[in-house]
C-alpha cells in the first residue's frame, strides 16, 4: 500500500511537470487541484472500495461506520449464511444501493420459523433515499413548526417507481398536518427522535398489485388513501408503526432483545397483537408499539410481557 502511495506521488509530480512545462507555481496549482478532486471524490471511492471488499468476502469487523454490523455475532438463529453480514454493509454504507433484500439477516430454512430475520429488519429500516428524489419539502407554517419542534422534515411526495413498488404524488392537507402534530405531541422524545422525515403519497402499490399502507425507511412514506376517511388504518397507528421501524434501525440492540424474547430462534413463541404482527419480529414489534400508543390496555391484556417490554425499552 505504501509503495502504491509513493508511486502515485511520483506519477503526480511527473504529470505536473509535463503539463506545466516546469513552472513551479503551475505545478503547485495542478497538484492542488488534483488533490482537491481526489478529496471530494473520496467518500464515493470509499463506498466503491467497501462494496468490492464486501463482494469478495472481506471481514467486516474493521468497519465501524455501520451500526448493523456491530452486533452481528449476537444472533442465535439457525442456518445463518456465513457471508451475509458482509453484504449488509452494501446497503447501509450506501443507502441507495440496489439491495432491498434485507441482506445480513437471519433467515431460517425451517418451515415454521420466520423467513425474515432480525438483521434483515434492521437493515431494511436503515434504507434511506435522498429526500429530493421522493418529495418536495412542504412549505406550510405547520410543516415548518414540525421541523423546528420535532426535527422531522415533511415532504409532499413525488410520483416514483422502482422494481418492487410505485407511488403517486400527494400533498399534505392542513388537517393531516394538524393530526400529525397531535401524534408527535404524545410521543416520547427518544422514540420521536429516531425519525427524520415523512412523505405523503397518494397511492402506494407493490408490483403484485397489493396496496401497502406505508413504507418504512428514511423518509417514511405513508399512503393518504390508507389514512383517509374510509381508509383502512388510522394515521396514528400507521405513523407509530412506521416510526417503530426507525427505532429498530437506530436501536438495533433493543430490537434484538425483542426478537430473542418473543421470537426465540426465529420461531414465534406467542401470537402478536394482529395478524400482520405474526409475519416477523419486526412487524410484531411495530404492531405492538402502535397498539401501545392507541390502546395500551388492550395490549396489556393481550400480552403483559410485550407491554412491559415496550414501556421499559421503547417508550422513552
Amino acid at each position: 500500500m505504501k509503495r502504491i502511495r509513493r508511486l502515485s506521488v511520483i506519477m503526480l509530480l511527473v504529470c505536473s511537470v509535463f503539463m506545466t512545462g516546469c513552472d513551479a507555481s503551475q505545478i503547485i496549482d495542478v497538484i492542488g487541484k488534483i488533490a482537491q478532486g481526489v478529496q471530494q471524490a473520496m467518500p464515493a471511492i470509499k463506498n466503491v472500495v467497501d462494496t468490492f471488499s464486501n463482494i469478495f468476502g472481506n471481514d467486516n469487523n474493521n468497519n465501524n461506520n455501520n451500526a448493523a454490523v456491530d452486533n452481528t455475532n449476537t444472533n442465535t438463529n439457525t442456518n445463518t449464511e456465513a457471508n451475509t453480514n458482509s453484504e449488509a454493509n452494501v446497503v447501509t454504507v450506501d443507502p441507495n444501493a440496489e439491495d432491498v433484500t434485507g441482506t445480513g439477516g437471519q433467515s431460517t430454512n425451517v418451515a415454521g420459523q420466520s423467513a425474515t430475520g432480525v438483521e434483515e429488519v434492521i437493515t431494511g429500516a436503515q434504507i434511506a433515499v435522498p429526500y429530493s428524489q421522493v418529495g418536495t419539502e412542504n412549505t406550510s407554517a405547520a410543516a415548518a413548526q414540525i421541523k423546528t419542534k420535532y426535527g422531522i422534515t415533511i415532504l409532499d411526495g413525488k410520483a416514483w417507481k422502482d422494481e418492487w413498488n410505485s407511488a403517486t404524488a400527494e400533498k399534505w392537507s392542513a388537517q393531516q398536518l394538524a393530526e400529525f402534530t397531535a401524534i408527535m405531541e404524545k410521543l416520547p422524545t427518544g422514540f420521536r427522535n429516531c425519525t427524520k422525515g415523512f412523505a405523503m403519497q397518494k397511492d402506494i402499490r407493490d408490483n403484485d398489485g397489493n396496496e401497502p399502507s406505508g413504507l418504512g425507511g428514511d423518509p417514511i412514506m405513508i399512503s393518504s388513501k390508507a389514512v383517509a376517511n374510509g381508509g383502512w388504518i388510522s394515521m396514528a397507528n400507521l405513523v407509530v408503526h412506521e416510526m417503530t421501524h426507525q427505532v429498530q434501525a437506530k436501536n438495533p440492540d433493543v430490537f434484538r432483545q425483542w426478537a430473542a424474547k418473543f421470537w426465540p430462534n426465529g420461531k414465534q413463541a406467542k401470537a402478536s397483537i394482529s395478524d400482520y404482527g405474526n409475519t416477523d419480529a419486526g412487524e410484531d414489534m411495530a404492531e405492538c408499539v402502535a397498539e401501545y400508543y392507541s390502546n395500551p390496555e388492550k395490549l396489556k391484556q393481550h400480552d403483559p410481557e410485550r407491554y412491559e417490554f415496550i414501556k421499559n425499552n421503547v417508550w422513552k
Binding site: A128, W160, D162, E211, P212, L215, G216, G217, W232, L238
Partner: peptide, 10 residues
C-alpha cells in the same frame, strides 16, 4: 435508487 422495503400491507 430503491425505495424502503418495509412495507405495511393492507
Amino acid at each position: 435508487m430503491v425505495m424502503p422495503a418495509l412495507s405495511m400491507i393492507r
